[in-house]
Amino acid sequence: MSNSKLYKGSLSTIILKLLAETHKMYGYEITQKVKELTQGELTITEGALYPALHKLEANGFLEVEMQRVDNRLRKYYKLTQAGNQEKVSRIEELERFIETIQGIVNPKPSLG
């Protein structure tokens, strides 16, 4: 998929949004959820997902919970209170950006 450059700046916003809707998620689950929601149009690469998750965790937007699943450990990510606030502002920012891009790509015909 050649759209990776387009969504790269929005990856953290996508992660925050998904975690706000689902109580907690693990890395692989996030990649699959994005694939499912976008019917395979958007694929989050593994090499981009974990750095983004770790950055969000270091900034205090995510907290982790570990669970033993079968015979291995699974790391779940959850939104913190700060993460919830960050999600709201980032989504607003993204919506404004989409509107701006739409204005450029699809300008409304002026009446004058």
């Binding site: 690469t45 750095p51 770790h54």
Partner: peptide
């Protein structure tokens, strides 16, 4: 292969930075 040509190195590097920040 899905991790790209640099393998796990991006993940490790970012994790290191995140932990230093912490």
């Amino acid at each position: 292969k899905k991790f790209g040509i640099f393998g796990f190195s991006d993940v490790v590097e970012e994790r290191q930075q995140a932990m230093q920040k912490r």
